[in-house]
Write a protein that binds this DNA or RNA. Structure first.
Lengths: 213, 213
DNA sequence: CTCAGCGTCACTCACAAGTGGGACCTGTGC
DNA sequence: GCACAGGTCCCACTTGTGAGTGACGCTGAG
């Protein structure tokens, strides 16, 4: 589910990153795209958590790539691959919403950091981070930690959407042809799944996770 | 307006970052805080765009510091200062919403990246998810703008942040050292401004508009 | 088959939320 | 000086929410 895609014009860069990713624990193999077009196709299919993007992408360019990416995978964190001296591309990319940067000479430790980020995003709600740490973390997980990302059912999602639109439980019930009590049950279950204490927090978590817009 | 604050227990680290910042173009001098308390005071006054935060802050700790910071400067991006091996603090901080990390041995290039981020943030709305490709620095706030998009006051924003974190009105009052009634007043006014019928919808609208993350 | 998960509905109850007033103080701008 | 906005607090009131239960039928996986 959560994954990483590298989009770089240079085949050698792509290849090295893909190969390096194989040696990183906790990190699913990185998929590679050579152009913005390929990236969009991949992103649409894989909904990656992190996209490593060439800051000097030709033709459509990194800006256009990010714009299109935002359409198909709005919650992918873009990490720009830029040379240490290419501050100009970097500033531009950051201005467009990139979350961080790495040099194309990424090593195993840096990819491990990306893996940590993927896990951080996948396992908890409130975060919008970029290129994090070094060395693989994630050894211990307390048992109440969701080893499987809790998935909302269709009904729960519909109730959550209603909440985000300011509907009361009774109104949501009318919208969905349910009794208010049923809506309350769905609400209670989705609160538990999301770890929310009330509907306001549930909406916040749901939007951060991209469950609702 | 947009600024950077470093909060680190070590005076030498603070000092070096402050001094280094002087040599970075586009970056206003970095202000320094030695503790979470000092940070909150500074952040309330300066509303910084970026906060460099010691991952091993003593006493109140980085988590508490981030919580308080979110109250007084909800839009500040937290960048954690952690040693390359301190993945544990790092993961914790990222889980709490930190945007990135640096080692305490930050160099000029890394601060330049931070500067880039400051400019990126300062030149657009406080949005994080949808980065509108704009080159125009200041949208210019006219009366018409405010009519179409009411602006929340600092207090209203802080209350909204509390709501998105699942805090009750009474808890928000404790967080901000206010009476519950005052929180209710701020809540009522921000509901009106956002056109929300309850806190869940207010959170949804606030996140869509990028007022909160 | 059994069992877990989902969807549905019902009931109670404490309390939080939301709404309507009003009041006082402090800036800031005209 | 005045008006105005923001921030603070109070009272009283109605409504909704959230928690804690219990129950029944269906479906799909083991």
């Amino acid at each position: 589910m959560a994954g990483v895609v590298v989009c770089h014009a240079s085949a050698s860069v792509r290849e090295r990153i893909v190969v390096t990713s194989l040696g990183v624990p906790l990190l699913a193999p990185v998929r590679a795209a050579a152009s913005a077009d390929e990236l969009v196709v991949l992103a649409r299919r894989l909904a990656p958590t992190v996209v490593l993007l060439d800051a000097d992408l030709p033709t459509p360019g990194p800006g256009e790539a990010m714009r299109r990416l935002a359409q198909v995978a709005p919650h992918a964190a873009v990490v720009v691959l830029a040379g240490p001296d290419d501050t100009e591309s970097l500033v531009r990319a950051l201005a467009l919403g990139a979350r961080g940067f790495l040099t194309p000479e990424v090593n195993r430790a840096e990819l491990a950091a990306v893996a940590a980020h993927v896990h951080a995003v996948a396992s908890m709600a409130p975060a919008t981070p970029p290129p994090p740490p070094r060395e693989e973390p994630r050894p211990r997980e307390t048992k109440e930690n969701e080893k499987t990302q809790p998935v909302l059912t269709r009904r729960e999602l519909e109730v959550l959407v209603g909440m985000s639109n300011g509907r009361s439980n009774a109104q949501i019930g009318q919208d969905l042809y349910l009794s208010e009590d049923t809506v309350k049950t769905h609400a209670r279950r989705l609160f538990r799944k999301l770890g929310a204490s009330d509907r306001a927090q549930a909406v916040a978590i749901g939007m951060r996770r991209g469950l609702i817009q």
